[in-house]
């Protein structure tokens, strides 16, 4: 177990380091932030001063080393746009995105397990057709388009839901619904597949032979074993929302970390971009470890 965790940590650390290097150099390659932050009429003196204060007059490599030393001390620097430490808006945004991901994935898990089990119970039956339809939609629907159409119908047309913001429960309905589609279709398929395997297994046949009714067979006997592969997919999809809710957050004006990242890229706010990527990557790392541990708890045969 310990050895496994170590291996996992080292692998993640390598990816993290690659990510830092890539993002830092790519973002510095694109141009001098001085031009962006000072007015065009700024004097050369003001420009030099700005460069010196933010360390932009140093060679790129020494800027990078300075950045890494700061990073090791968990110092992400100041946001150039917001006059606050770069980590602050990131943590605020991340809290929002985390809530969004948790709510969505809780609903997805519940719905997918229910419908997936029902679909597996009668292969080719009504629920199976419904499940196939949703999986197909999940894999085919462009989320930005669905989001726009939802706004046209429910906000502009019917006036039921607000278009953007986070004020009330109503604000959450559309972002959650749009984020729901893709993971729902995917997890549904996994649940269905592994439930079919579980329902064909010897212990389910035994239970059936002993006269156990359908409901306990599905939800007690089969589901427990069928859930193992599902957990991995749930983990992957949660990670996907944590770093991929960019579009939904942008369209619905949701103050999450994805929107913050897009805004910061547009404004060339390097420190915020890097802090956001670090926080997200770290969160996904923790999430993956949790999934692995959960796996080990649920399946006593797995010993890393």
């Amino acid at each position: 177990m310990k050895k496994f965790l170590w291996k996992r940590a080292v692998a993640s650390a390598i990816s993290l380091i690659c990510l830092i290097i890539l993002v830092f150099f790519l973002s510095r390659l694109t141009g001098d932030p001085t031009d962006l932050f000072l007015p065009e009429t700024a004097t050369q003196e003001a420009r030099d001063n700005y460069r010196r204060v933010h360390g932009l007059d140093q060679p790129l490599v020494s800027q990078f080393f300075r950045y890494v030393t700061d990073l090791v001390q968990l110092n992400f620097g100041e946001s150039v746009r917001r006059a606050e430490p770069a980590i602050d808006p990131v943590l605020r945004g991340f809290a929002w995105t985390l809530q969004l991901a948790t709510v969505t994935m809780a609903l997805v898990t519940l719905a997918a397990i229910t419908l997936g089990s029902l679909a597996a119970f009668h292969v080719g039956g009504f629920f199976d057709r419904v499940a196939t339809f949703f999986s197909l939609m999940g894999a085919s629907a462009p989320d930005f388009w669905i989001a726009i159409i939802a706004i046209v119908v429910f906000s502009v047309g019917l006036g039921w839901l607000p278009t953007s913001g986070t004020g009330s429960v109503w604000h959450w309905i559309m972002p959650v619904a749009v984020l729901f589609i893709r993971p729902f279709g995917l997890i549904l398929q996994v649940v269905r597949g592994s439930m079919i395997t579980a329902l064909n297994s010897a212990y389910v046949k035994t239970a059936r032979a002993k006269g156990v009714e359908n409901r306990p067979i599905i939800f007690v006997h089969a589901l427990r074993n069928a859930l193992l592969p599902v957990i991995t997919v749930i983990g992957d999809q949660t990670a996907a929302i944590l770093n991929g809710a960019v579009i939904v957050e942008t369209i619905f004006g949701f103050p999450g970390v994805g929107k913050l990242m897009i805004d910061s890229i547009l404004q060339r706010d390097f420190n915020v971009i890097l802090a956001a990527i670090m926080v997200t990557a770290f969160a996904i790392f923790i999430l993956n470890i949790m999934i692995d541990l959960l796996y080990a708890v649920l399946d006593p045969r797995i010993r890393y």
Binding site: S15, V23, L26
Partner: peptide, 22 residues
């Protein structure tokens, strides 16, 4: 395989967003 792990651990949409801005 480690190379694949590194690519996999990048958030792909985000990576695309970053690279395409640059």
């Amino acid at each position: 395989m480690r190379l694949a792990d590194v690519i996999m651990s990048f958030p792909s949409l985000l990576l695309a967003v970053i690279v395409l801005y640059m």
